[in-house]
Amino acid sequence: MDPLARNNVTVGGAEGAPPMVFAHGFGCDQVMWRFVAPAFEASHRTVLLDHVGAGGSDLSAYDPARHGRLDGYAEDLVEVLDALALGPAVLVGHSVSSMIGVLAAAARPDLFSSLVLVCPSPRYTDDEGYRGGFTAEQIADLLDTMDANYLGWSAQIAPVIMGVPHRPELGQELASSFCRTDPALARRFARTTFLSDNRADLARVRTPSLVLQCREDAIAPPEVGHYVRDHLAGAELVVLDATGHCPNLSASAELVAAMKGYLGAGAAPAPAPAGASR
């Protein structure tokens, strides 16, 4: 199977420039980088992908055994980078993808020059001496909410494909696919995301990394960001003046600025990001 087709890989930016790979978090797809990736197109070869089960990925490639663990997604990522053969990349991983990046970098340090972990959490549920923010029952509540929107999800496909009168500028392709996926796979991905424990994997990483945390984040509380910084060798923590779990959408300008600050001279100056004015 061609990993590039499987993960709906989109390559853009400057040819020959160092690669920067964007991996989306739970609930979304590569479209969520639309306000961030353009800011690096002048300085980097940008690579966007959809995890199997999300966006434009090949749903038939979903393997319950492989994708029942985050390691399976990390293997997918490694296969994509091997297939592209662009050299060591900056991995920008949001939410669960920051842990997927951690696992990939632990397994194949040669593929990564640095990691940018946006709102990471190595474990979402509480444990003795560790506060992840949720209990297992609350994760079950999430699955119920997803199920409750299952019927609506199916019913909504048809009108959405007809067009998006209130936001014509987005185009119908985008609106029809963004954040919509097979509910059964989404449910499994939710369990893989929220019930994994990757705390021990942090110590296996030697790649320099930037941890980006929002001031307020209902999914990954501030102490989780500190935990990641403390357990990841050579990690830097930057707290964004933003709220919510998706600064790549809600505070893209701050996110881009923090990334450029971290990547420093390595990143050439880029025009203001298209979506930053929002």
């Binding site: 609930g27 609350q138 509540d141 609106a175």
Partner: peptide, 18 residues
């Protein structure tokens, strides 16, 4: 809590994009 996670991971992104 479940709806809160759903809001943060699914609805808020859609609201921002769509």
């Amino acid at each position: 809590v479940g709806a809160r996670i759903y809001w943060e991971t699914h609805l808020s992104p859609v609201l921002h994009v769509d």
